[in-house]
């Protein structure tokens, strides 16, 4: 089944990158300009008409947000993941809320957690999970979580770290040797 989907991508988007393939699972990566076209094609001609999730990864090393749309075809039991990289600075991603109204909720969540704007989403900016958040969006990797928690929720005694070997010795290592087993029997 997945071959048909793959063929469709090969014909329409010859520059796509294959990330992973299984018998009912395909993960492809396209460039940010053709992401919308790929999703629309997957919905209209490949039968992947259920949007399961929009996930985001903050790849700060490459300076991009990798956004993945997970589309499912319930009839054929196949899953299609379409990824695209978007530049981190002033990130703008086209909204899917005109195609799937449910995408609006995912996009609002991503806007709150990563600060990625989805132009075209009618409910963008409404409170979703965080109420009146004023700091850097908390899921971005340049957000210092611990520093923020210390600043807002107050000082907290750091956890004391105790190395068990310091107190009980290398018990496990000892017991696994023949010598250790013998010593244990003697005890």
């Amino acid at each position: 089944m997945i071959d048909k989907v793959k063929n469709g991508f090969e014909i329409r988007f010859p520059l796509y990158k294959l990330v992973r393939e299984q018998h009912n699972y395909l993960h492809v990566k396209v460039d940010m300009v053709s992401a919308m076209d790929a999703i629309v094609m997957a919905k209209t001609s490949l039968g992947h008409n259920v949007l399961q999730l929009i996930s985001t990864v903050d790849r700060i090393e490459d300076g991009v947000f990798q956004i993945t749309w997970i589309l499912e075809n319930y009839g054929a039991c196949t899953v299609l993941l379409i990824s695209a990289d978007f530049p981190r600075e002033n990130c703008l991603v086209p909204s899917l809320s005109q195609i799937w109204p449910a995408a609006s909720a995912f996009e609002r969540e991503i806007f709150e957690m990563y600060g990625i704007s989805f132009p075209g989403n009618p409910r963008e900016g409404e409170d979703f999970l965080l109420e009146s958040w004023k700091d850097t969006p908390p899921m971005r990797r340049d957000f210092e979580t611990e520093e923020y928690a210390m600043r807002v929720f107050g000082e907290r005694q750091p956890r004391e770290h105790i190395d068990p070997r310091q107190y009980v010795g290398d018990i496990v290592g000892e017991w696994n040797t023949p010598m250790g087993r013998k010593r244990k029997e003697e005890k």
Binding site: P138, F153, G154, R156
Partner: peptide, 10 residues
């Protein structure tokens, strides 16, 4: 959750 952005500590 001591270093969470959203969970109060004490």
């Amino acid at each position: 959750y001591f270093d969470s952005y959203n969970t109060l500590n004490v």
